[in-house]
Every structure is written in C-alpha cells, then in structure tokens.
Design a protein around this nucleic acid. Structure first.
Lengths: 187, 187
DNA sequence: CCAGGACGTAACGGTTGCGTTCCGCCGTTC
DNA sequence: GAACGGCGGAACGCAACCGTTACGTCCTGG
C-alpha cells in the first residue's frame, strides 16, 4: 500500500515546484528532491510528468467553490469577486494558473483539463449568479452569460494575474458598480 | 559586420520557437536549427538566452500602437478593441504573451521589460482615450484611468487569451456598450 | 517472527542543452 | 590577390534530467 504522507508530500512539492519554475521546467528529480522522496516513489504513482501534473492539478482545481447566494445581485457579485480576488492573490495560484494557461495553448491534455475546471464550476458560478439576478429582475432577461462572465472575471484577472497591480481598498466596490452597470447595459 | 539577413532569421526563429515551446523550454540550439544558422552566429549577437529573448521581445513590443482618435469615445473604443482583439487573435501573440506573462512572475528582468511595454504605451493608450472622452464630456471627470484600463482590456484579454473562446460577430459591439456603461457608472 | 512491499539511495545508459573552441569556406575590402 | 571577418559545422566538457534497475532498510500484516 502506498503511503499517504508520501503522496501528500509529493503533491505539495509539485504545486510548489510548479509555482517556482513552471510546467515547462518542472522536473521529476526536482520534485523528488523537494519532497524529500526518491524518484521511485513518484514513478510508483504516476508514469510520467504530464500524467502526474494533470492528476494533481485537476484534483486541486476540482474542489468546488461555494456558489454565492446572498439574496441580491450586488451581494452575490461582491462575494464572488472577493473569493476570486483572494484566490488570485495567493502566491501559488497566481503563479500556477497563468503558467498552465499558457501551457494549455500547446498541450491539448492540459487545455482540456483546465477547460473542464473552468467551465464546470467557474462558469457555472457565473451562470447561477446571472440566472438568480435575472429571476429576481435585477438583470434583463436576455443577458448573455458568456459575455457576463467575461465582464465579471476579466478585469479582475487582468489586474491581478496579468498586470499584477495591487488592489486599492475601494477597487472592488467600484468594480462592482461598474460591472453591474455594464451587465444592465449589455442586454 | 554581422549580416542582417541572418539576424532577421534568428529573430523570426526566436519568436516562432517562443510561441511553440515557450520561454521555459526555449533552447538556443533549437533556435539555431530553425533559423538554419550556426550557434556561433547567435552567440556572436547575444551572450545568452535571456538577453536574446529580452532584446528581441522588447523590440517587437516597443513598436508603438497608433493611438486612436476618431472623434468620439465609442469610436475610439471600438477601434482600440478591434486592434487589441486582432493582435490577441494572432497565433504568435496569443501564445507568446501569456507565456511571457507567466514567466515574468519568476524573472524580474522579463517582468520589467513587459511592464515597460505594457505601461509605456498600452496604458498610455488608455489614458489618452479616457482623457479625450473626459475632455469631450463623454465620461465624468473623476474617471479612474487604472480601473478604466482594467475594464477595457480585461474582458477581451480574458476571453481571447485565457478562456480562448472565439469572438461572435456582435460580441465587440455588445462589449463596447457594456464597457461604456461601466465607465460612466464607475465615476 | 516472517513475508511482502514501499521506501531511499545509487547507479545505469541515453538524451538534450549549455557555452566554447577550432576549422575551412566564402564574400568583401583594399 | 591577400587579409579580414562572418559564416556553418563539428566537436568539446559539463550539467541536468529522463525512465529504469538493483539493492538494502524498515514497517506492517498475518
């Protein structure tokens, strides 16, 4: 039986290593070194680097995000942006996500895994959020969920993951106002 | 005297190779192979991989984008989004940019180079665009240029470079309406 | 108390890439 | 027509990493 503590150490090491050097330069040997583990322990669990990373990442990414339902669209939106903002400001996430996104454009398996994670619940969150708002009459009925998700997450992702500029205190509030107006206007 | 056609071949090869395998796995040998050139020709021009990539990329990124001034904010915005959208849909750009962005989080020199490129004219474009609109009275005077740039570029970048979803025909139009409303509301 | 198995270590041969060096070729320049 | 210099090609020693194997240790279950 494989030892759970070893598996955990390897998983942690992969995430850290992924954040530090990226997928392209990730090496099994470095993972083993960091985990304080023999290479054999890794090859006993996964057959190569891609399989290992996919399994570990999709496991982490698959942990479902609690869907907000605060009773009002503004509340839902604020909660969602705070959650996403928090996540994107975590060092590991902010390094790994853009890296894997870039890698996904070259590797269909990574792309599929990330798309699944993205579509499955991130966009589901958006759908639910928009659906609730439409049902409450806070947004027009024809609101395009795809466009809405872009308008919701795009600016925050851009600022935190691309431009890597810190968030001023009132930034999220302003953004909520702006995005709400955008969605109402987008019909 | 170094031969210009050789230099050009190397520059092209670097961009292509960068798009195909990313910075992390870029190798001088592969560049030389692709350019049909000896390694010596490369080392005669740059002393290592980082220096080579930085020089080439910042050269490409430094080519200034024509600042839109169509007379109206909606027109400026449409033009800007079309230009950016076009650029982000180019295969090479859409591969290289996210890749280098991810790499920038690990390499200060890359980060600085990209920040310079981003700040220098991409954000300048935003500033000018917002400034013109404010001067024309199309946007309130207190409009925050930083937030505005996020709201402008974030959704498009998210959709094209992150989610990698194609743009429906009327998407940009909808987005222009939405973003305009967002900026007016953001005061 | 013994067998099995997961473990770390070490080494294997093979590949890739680094940055450097030397060579012979060839087009310019004078 | 000779000197110069950039060129491609080949090889260098070195390092990292691949995926695999053999070995000896230790823990655990029966």
């Amino acid at each position: 039986m494989l030892r759970g503590d070893i598996t955990k150490a390897i998983r942690d090491a992969v995430m850290t290593e992924l954040a530090e050097v990226g997928y392209g330069r990730l090496s099994i040997e470095a993972v083993a070194r960091r985990a304080g583990v023999g290479k054999t322990a890794i090859y006993r669990r996964w057959s190569n680097k891609l399989e290992m990373v996919l399994e570990i990442v999709s496991d982490v990414a698959g942990r479902s995000v609690p869907l907000p339902d605060t009773g009002s669209f503004a509340g839902d939106l604020q909660l969602l942006l705070m959650i996403v903002g928090k996540a994107l400001q975590h060092r590991i996430a902010s390094q790994i996500i853009p890296d894997l996104m870039a890698e996904a454009s070259r590797n269909p398996q990574i792309a599929e895994t990330l798309q699944k994670a993205l579509r499955t619940h991130q966009q589901a969150v958006g759908d639910k959020l928009i659906g609730q708002a439409v049902a409450r009459g806070e947004l027009p009925a024809g609101t395009d969920p795809d466009l809405a998700v872009d308008l919701l997450l795009g600016p925050l992702y851009w600022r935190l993951a691309v431009a890597r500029t810190p968030l001023p205190d009132d930034y999220l509030d302003k953004m909520i106002v702006a995005v709400t107006a955008a969605l109402k206007a987008a019909n």
